[in-house]
């Protein structure tokens, strides 16, 4: 764990498609960073409210951070909630030697089913991530894990857990756990905490 004085610039992207819970995932990680005394800037894609379009949250933590947007080639970690969205963001933003945490489950655009576009296989995506220069790649089907917990929607919290489990975030796992406990107080808290712990374990075991 890096201490707060050391962090000058840490860049994290949470990428996915609308409706996957990107915003909540980024709010939780960024709130945990503020709680630990960091300077934080988060650039969100709110875009249109409907589901299905690509979205990305840029989370920047550190004393030298001003811009809310991460520049090409400067992301330290990419957390991808969908397979091709992970690659899209890694291709443009991941720094050489950066890390990727990816949900391998694809959400296929209509144009692919119509035969107008191709969707790469998980193996092709992982291989491409390596060629881009990703040093550490943690990947699993987080949607299936969420379905096993009883709710596909908590996939985002599994991925927050997986991000924490990578050991790369400059914030403590406990701070994230506390933010989840406060922010999601209510009937779904237990399920979300379970999802977070599951992601943590999945990630640590890879």
């Amino acid at each position: 764990m890096k201490s707060m004085a050391q962090v000058k610039e840490f860049n994290l992207i949470i990428a996915g498609i609308g409706g996957q819970g990107n915003l909540l995932a980024s709010e939780i990680i960024a709130s945990a960073a503020v709680r630990e005394g960091h300077r934080v800037r988060v650039g969100e894609t709110f875009g249109a409210a409907q589901r299905g379009g690509p979205v990305a949250s840029y989370i920047r933590i550190g004393s030298e951070v001003y811009s809310p947007i991460i520049d090409p080639g400067r992301a330290d970690l990419i957390v991808g909630l969908e397979a091709v969205e992970t690659l899209r963001n890694a291709f443009r933003f991941l720094r050489p030697g950066g890390a990727v945490v990816m949900n391998t489950r694809p959400i296929v655009p209509v144009e692919v089913s119509m035969g107008l576009q191709k969707y790469p296989s998980p193996q092709e995506i992982i291989e491409a991530l390596r060629r881009i220069g990703a040093e550490k790649i943690i990947h699993f089907d987080a949607t299936s894990e969420a379905e096993r917990l009883g709710m596909a929607l908590v996939m985002n919290m599994i991925m927050v857990g997986a991000a924490a489990g990578s050991g790369l975030l400059p914030i403590s796992t406990e701070a994230i756990r506390q933010v989840i406990t406060e922010r999601l107080a209510g009937p779904l808290l237990e399920l979300n905490l379970k999802a977070f712990e599951l992601g943590l374990e999945k990630s640590r075991s890879q």
Binding site: R51, G52, L87, R88, V110, V112, Q117, A128, I132
Partner: peptide, 13 residues
């Protein structure tokens, strides 16, 4: 690699 990234636009839910 750039070419293999499937384009994805906005879509109705």
């Amino acid at each position: 690699i750039g070419k293999m990234i499937t384009p994805r636009g906005l879509t109705m839910c």
